[in-house]
Amino acid sequence: MARGGFACPGLLGMLLVILSLWSPLAYAGGVSVTRASTELRDGSLWLDADARLELFKDQADALSSGVQLVFAWDVVIEQDRGWWGTRELNTDAWRARLEYHSLSQLYRVFWSSSGGQSLEPESFASLEGAADYISHPRNLWLAPASAVPLPGAYRGRARLRLVHDSLPLPIRPRALFASSWQLSSEWYLWAF
């Protein structure tokens, strides 16, 4: 290296490593969306989706210790307007809160949307059943039909992820860098 150049190449390398670890896309295992579709029915736009959600032992331990996990179905609907570009529609985001009920020894799932809607909670004797319930949502209300005027070309994308912000504060740094806590799927795209 020439004299007078960058003094600390090791520091730069360390910074790059930290930035690479920082990226949430560094670990994307455990969750993948296999299908998603929307349907206009009864004056509303509904979402049906299928995903593969495998929870690690870390999540099972956390649940049994009383930690609640929140999974989010991020859904984005865009209208393709040709020369005018795309327009993103306002749709509800759904979250599923998973918790363990010690008295009944059941796993419970509570659905709620950003629009204030909620579904009847469901209880499951096994964690796998609860995860399966979260990963296969049916008839999730997204938007009124008026928000999706027809005819029109629309694109949708959806993903399922563990919401780190809902985790207890002390384990958030670990969740940022631990691969077992990187539960976020790639975006699944479809058109309708």
Binding site: A96, R97, L103, L106, W111, S123
Partner: peptide, 28 residues
């Protein structure tokens, strides 16, 4: 035979932990 929390309670209608802590009582 199983003991189940009743999901229709208002305390569990919200997905946020804050709401749950605000209404801790749960019907069984």
């Amino acid at each position: 035979l199983a003991l189940e929390p009743m999901g229709s309670q208002a305390s569990r209608s919200a997905a946020s932990p804050e709401d749950a802590e605000a209404n801790p009582a749960d019907a069984l």
